[in-house]
């Protein structure tokens, strides 16, 4: 079970979180034209990297904030966590 540091609540067990996918995907702006290709990429296309991956988790059984987690998909090592408004480098 992973041990995830919520930027608001501190280290908490994985049980308290739910997974939310790739955090680097940006939704096309609302009310703006978007090409079919860009839209399809946004809806369907995801990388499945082996190694570092910045992903979203929601602290559903805690503060309910969505957060960013940089995790190694092979080893589960977590390098960094951040608020969604913050950048992970």
């Amino acid at each position: 079970m992973l041990y995830i540091k919520c930027p608001y609540c501190g280290l908490r067990a994985q049980k308290e979180f739910s997974y939310g996918g790739d955090a680097t995907v940006k939704r096309p702006n609302i009310n703006e034209e978007v090409s079919s290709e860009d839209w399809d990429n946004f809806v369907y296309m995801r990388k499945s990297p082996r190694g570092k991956h910045i992903e979203l988790w929601q602290h559903i059984a805690g503060c309910r904030q969505w957060i960013k987690v940089q995790r190694d998909t092979a080893t589960h090592e977590i390098f960094q966590t951040a608020k969604v408004t913050e950048e992970i480098r």
Partner: peptide, 11 residues
Amino acid sequence: SHLEYYLQIVW
């Protein structure tokens, strides 16, 4: 969760 996602991350 869906509403929170859009409010916290997208808009």
